[in-house]
């Protein structure tokens, strides 16, 4: 009895926790994006790196400035702002003026996340909110594409002064989707896979993005149903169109071009803005795939991933409500009329 009792804590059970934490999930997504990020900088040069850093600086600055003082450390500690910045940066053209990237980051966090109540409360993917803002505000700069020019490239436009920029008179080259849409040119599959095409700085290499996706699946950081559902529905819908008339892009091209990989694996899977339930996830994913094909083929823009995801983000609360799983030991209910038996 001489031994003193240790001071015991009374933390409620369960004491065991699975090892994944929200912060670790965010960091895993960041790690998964690193190969594509390095490839983007390698292909598009130091200018692309500056755009990327600008976007990240914008989101972190936004998180810091817009958060209550007491919560700053915790909010920055969950790495979600860093991830938003990285995703935003990767979805920007490498020629973008850096100040626009910073502004996009600020808007992504401020308008995309903080005004909704911070992490976990926003309806729309913050990175895409930032990108949509930039596309609406600076349409010319946001659609100024360049063929990969190597590591030692800084674009003149990168260093433009805020609101004082001149005109862009540089050699531009269309993206594979632009070529397809406006000139009905297909791009070689190998270029699409390795990223040797014009486009946003992180979206061009389908292979590296898939590789990161594999890592995320192993780490169980994302819901596999969402990329799987998007791929499937893009294949089905673009396949149908292609079978009707081969002037439409074939499914393989549809899958490997544009920001589809980036969007399907890294943006649509954002847990906050995607449905809670497995069934909801399937509907959400097929909706995105359908909208991508619809916008790409019939819309005014060559690319539709961003709007497809944002539109389905808006439907997510509804999907959550109608895909509530049936409680154990209760009869089936009609999802559209909760409370009533079907």
């Amino acid at each position: 009895m001489t031994q003193k009792d240790p001071k015991l804590r009374v933390l409620p059970s369960p004491l065991l926790k699975q090892p994944n934490t929200s912060a670790r999930v965010m960091r895993d997504v960041i790690y998964a994006l690193l190969p594509a990020t390095v490839a983007g900088v390698w292909l598009f040069g130091v200018g692309a790196l500056l755009v990327l850093l600008g976007a990240i600086a914008g989101t972190i600055w936004g998180e810091y400035v817009f958060s209550p003082v007491a919560e700053r450390k915790i909010r920055l500690g969950d790495s979600s702002a860093l991830l938003t910045g990285l995703l935003l940066g990767l979805s920007l053209p490498p020629t973008l003026p850096i100040w626009m990237a910073v502004l996009g980051g600020l808007v992504a966090i401020g308008l995309g996340k903080i005004i909704w109540g911070g992490l976990g409360h926003n309806f729309f993917n913050p990175a895409l909110v930032g990108r949509a803002f930039l596309l609406a505000t600076f349409p010319a700069a946001m659609t100024n594409w360049n063929a990969p020019a190597g590591l030692a490239t800084i674009y003149q436009s990168n260093l433009a002064w805020p609101f004082l920029q001149g005109n862009y008179d540089m050699i531009t080259s269309a993206t594979p989707l632009g070529l397809m849409k406006f000139q009905h040119h297909s791009t070689a599959f190998s270029n699409l896979i390795f990223g040797n095409t014009g486009g946003c700085l992180g979206e061009t290499s389908a292979l590296l993005l898939l590789l990161g996706g594999g890592y995320l699946l192993i780490r169980r950081a994302i819901d596999w149903r969402i990329p799987a559902g998007i791929f499937l529905s893009v294949i089905v819908f673009s396949g149908i169109l292609w079978l009707i008339n081969t002037k439409y892009p074939d499914p393989i091209f549809a899958l490997s071009s544009g920001s589809l990989m980036l969007g399907a694996i890294y943006m649509a899977t954002d847990p906050v803005t995607s449905p809670l339930t497995p069934r909801g996830a399937w509907i959400f994913a097929s909706g995105i795939g359908f909208l991508i094909v619809l916008i790409r083929v019939f819309g005014g823009f060559p690319e539709g991933v961003m709007y497809a995801i944002l539109l389905m983000n808006a439907v997510t609360p509804l999907l959550d409500r109608i895909t509530q799983p049936r409680m154990f030991g209760t009869p089936k209910t009609n999802p559209l009329q909760p409370g009533k038996k079907s």
């Binding site: 804590r9 497995p278 409680m327």
Partner: peptide, 29 residues
């Protein structure tokens, strides 16, 4: 349990990942 197992993790906001929904054997939310 020692500190290693009984450490309560930092609480983050719910990120709506749905893991609890897929864990609940009674199919609650």
């Amino acid at each position: 349990f020692t500190d290693k197992e009984a450490a309560r993790p930092q609480e983050y906001p719910c990120i709506r990942c749905g893991r609890c929904v897929e864990a609940c054997p009674y199919f609650l939310n």
